[in-house]
Amino acid sequence: MNWTDPATIGYPAVFGGVLLGSIVPVVPTGAVVGAGAAVATTTGHLSLPLVLVLATLGAYAGDVVTFGIPRLGSEAAFRWISRRQPAERLEKAREQFARRGWQLVVIGRLVPAGRIPVLLAAAALGYPWRRLLPAALVACVLWATAYALLGILSGGLFDSPLVATLLATVLVLLVTVLANLIARWRRKSKEPV
């Protein structure tokens, strides 16, 4: 194994970083994808399609684990989620998952800080595996593509892989902050005065 070859480190870093960050949100997964795409765009060391595939697979595996752990112990997960929720609210959530569960899974993946609550709620409410798996795959493909586009944009602006990677990371963080601010503003505007 040639440890001086960026692909030797790059591909496992993309897959492992996204997988880890999808299970335990300590790694900024969007920045990992953006950086991988920026390096692929500015050098010949990484393949952009392979970066997308590995990011999608890492995100998908992480989402399946995040859903699967509480789903396998769904009775305990349901008690944990329901202990602070009125029965009407739980029933409304169950109805929403029954009607538009795939949309909730996709949107939850794309909205910063939305994925884990959606997956935990889906698991606790007994959302079926047969519906979650295809929805999560679509969500992960869209998510990886969106963050790779930010990396491609930064790689297209700068020839230096370091500058492109830094710009991709900054762009991902700015998009995340902006999305969180918009979500917070929308929640506050819906609150009764």
Rank of each mutant, 00 (worst) to 15 (best):
Ser154Val: 00
Ser154Arg: 00
Ser154Tyr: 00
Ser154Ala: 15
Gly155Asn: 03
Gly155Tyr: 03
Leu157Thr: 05
Phe158Ser: 13
Phe158Lys: 06
Asp159Gln: 14
Asp159Phe: 03
Ser160Ala: 09
Pro161Ser: 11
Leu162Cys: 03
Leu162Phe: 11
Leu162Asn: 01
Val163Asp: 01
Val163Lys: 05
Ala164Trp: 07
Ala164Glu: 05
Thr165Met: 06
Thr165Cys: 01
Leu166Ser: 09
Leu167His: 01
Leu167Cys: 12
Leu167Met: 14
Leu167Asn: 02
Ala168Trp: 03
Thr169Cys: 10
Val170Asn: 06
Val170Asp: 04
Val172Asp: 12
Val172Glu: 03
Leu173Lys: 02
Leu174Lys: 03
Leu174Met: 12
Val175Ala: 15
Val175Trp: 10
Thr176Gln: 14
Thr176Cys: 04
Val177Trp: 10
Val177Lys: 06
Leu178Cys: 08
Leu178Ser: 14
Leu178Thr: 15
Leu178Asp: 01
Leu178Trp: 06
Asn180Tyr: 10
Asn180Arg: 10
Asn180Phe: 08
Ile182Cys: 09
Ala183His: 05
Ala183Glu: 07
Ala183Ile: 07
Arg184Tyr: 11
Arg184Trp: 13
Trp185Ser: 15
Arg186Tyr: 12
Arg186Glu: 07
Arg186Met: 15
Arg187Gly: 01
Lys188Tyr: 08
Lys188Met: 11
Lys188Ser: 09
Ser189Glu: 10
Lys190Asn: 10
Lys190His: 12
Glu191Ala: 15
Glu191Gly: 04
Glu191Asn: 03
Glu191Trp: 07
